Amino acid sequence: MSIRLMLADDQALVRGALAALLSLEEDLSVVCEVSRGDLVVAAAREHRPDVALLDIEMPGLDGIAATAALRRAVPSVRVLIVTTFGRPGYLRRGMEAGAHGFVVKDTPSRELADVVRRIASGLRVVDPALAAESLAAGVNPLTERETDVLRLARDGRTVADLAAGLSLSEGTVRNHLSAAIGKTSARTRAEAVRLAESRGWL
């Protein structure tokens, strides 16, 4: 019996290549493709895939939020995150959201097909290099609020804008920014954002 797959990736070329490669395997069939994270749950409800292969950086909902939504809505679907960005923080957040596997996009197609089979059979599979990097990087030190503040600060908003956007006082926002700058060992707010992003914490 073939394993039913859903592909979610905003890059049509990547999605098409993945579909073509995986469809060459006799026991795998791609039953649906979506280009946005916010379409994942509806597509899974309609097509009932066994395994969903999700990219991280997608419009609508990123792959990590889409994983969490999918695990809540259709818990029978197993999730494999396939990403260009092998950031340690992404791996930890993806697994916390309920993903069953995490590999990078340059995984050879035969190996990827094998990972899909293993996940469909109930195993968890993580790219070993990423797992080692994630352990070395340690746990994300930022609180949820500090993460929210840094996310909003990405586009250079003022403290007043951040305070309004998060319904906090300007003093509280300054405290969160100061804590985040300290925890990332950054010198400025912009550097804190860049460092947190590069570690997959945002």
Rank of each mutant, 00 (worst) to 15 (best):
L5M: 09
L53Q: 01
L202S: 03
L13G: 05
L150Q: 04
C32V: 15
V173C: 03
A129R: 11
F85N: 10
F102N: 01
E46D: 14
R187V: 11
H176S: 12
S109N: 10
K183F: 01
A190H: 13
R110A: 11
R93N: 08
R117I: 14
E111P: 12
L13T: 12
V34E: 06
D50G: 15
A20L: 11
D38P: 04
L54Q: 03
L112H: 08
V82E: 15
G16W: 09
A44D: 00
L18P: 10
M6P: 03
A136N: 11
A20D: 10
V79R: 08
T172D: 03
E57I: 08
R154I: 04
L195T: 07
G101F: 14
G165Q: 15
D38S: 04
A163Q: 03
R93Q: 15
R199M: 15
A65G: 10
L70C: 02
V103S: 08
G60R: 15
L150G: 04
A66W: 01
A8V: 05
V115C: 03
D155T: 13
E46R: 15
L135N: 07
R48N: 08
V159Y: 01
G182R: 13
D127R: 13
R145K: 10
D155G: 10
V104E: 14
V30I: 13
E170Y: 00
T158M: 00
L61R: 15
G101A: 09
A164Q: 12
N175S: 08
E111D: 12
A164W: 04
G171D: 11
S169Y: 01
A163T: 09
T107N: 07
D155A: 14
L123G: 15
E144R: 06
L168S: 00
M1E: 12
